[in-house]
Design a binder for these strands. Structure first.
Length: 228
DNA sequence: CCAGACGTTGTT
DNA sequence: GTCTGG
DNA sequence: CCAGACGTTGTT
DNA sequence: GTCTGG
């Protein structure tokens, strides 16, 4: 699955890579992006098709949520069921997005201990993109609107399976127009995009256990650790 | 008709 | 919001 | 995802 | 054990 990631490419580089227009959000490098935080997301305007980079909160709140308490359990959506699940199906049809990332983290269970690994692609162009969904939610208590998102997961590939059996859907640039709704795409096409990233273009390395605590956010969290 | 549910993950 | 169960 | 907390009562 | 917060 995917419950933590890093996005440290400069904001103007993110905008250039995704071809977004308009004002850039205030956002610095993050090495330990966690659920419930405001993070950069790429969306295309349904009419003009212009791509925009904005900050949305990680953890999708369905429109009918009475409060924001359940958001932390909606940080991922399963590719296998997302077209049918009531919490995700309308977002799957109308509100797809891309989440820029440089690498994500998975924890390998090892008895009681858990060893975190950073995972990324071998591509030179950064950042990469997770497939995501977003939703707007109006807080009944305050009347404030909150825009939230979730990251779609699929089965692990041969490079990551030893660490964990699920991984986020990573979309190559060729798939971005269809996913963002700039090209007409039916369910079958969209379902076909949600597949594991090729194992031969995936790399993985162990990192410091400090990444487990969301209060830690340092560049060395993405650096390979020396086997003790 | 109204009431109630609606999600993911990991673990043994 | 939208579907299912009663 | 991990870390950290984990309670009750009555009232408008 | 299970839920909430980040």
């Amino acid at each position: 699955m995917c419950g933590r990631f890093a996005i440290h490419s400069p904001t103007d580089q993110i905008a250039a890579r995704f071809g977004t227009v308009g004002q850039l959000p205030e956002f610095g490098p993050r090495y330990n992006a966690a659920p419930l935080q405001m993070l950069p997301v790429v969306r295309a305007h349904p009419e003009t098709k212009e791509r925009r980079l904005g900050l949305l909160r990680w953890g999708l709140l369905p429109v009918w949520s009475k409060d924001a308490a359940g958001a932390a359990r909606m940080i991922n959506a399963r590719a296998e069921s997302v077209p049918e699940k009531p919490a995700f199906r309308s977002a799957f049809r109308k509100r797809r997005c891309l989440i820029p990332f440089d690498n994500f983290y998975e924890w390998k269970a090892d008895g009681k201990a858990k060893q975190p690994y950073a995972i990324g692609t071998t591509g030179n162009e950064k950042p990469d993109a997770f497939a995501g969904l977003w939703e707007g939610w109006k807080d009944p208590a305050t009347g404030e609107w909150l825009h939230t998102f979730t990251i779609i997961t699929t089965t692990a590939n041969d490079a990551t399976r030893d660490v964990h059996d699920r991984m986020p859907v990573i979309l190559p640039p060729a798939d971005w127009p269809a996913w963002l709704g700039e090209e007409e795409a039916g369910d079958d096409r969209l379902v076909g995009l949600m597949r594991p990233y090729p194992a031969d273009r995936t790399r993985l390395w162990p990192v410091h256990r400090d990444v487990g605590n969301v209060r830690n956010d340092r560049v060395d969290l993405i650096e390979p650790i020396n086997p003790a």
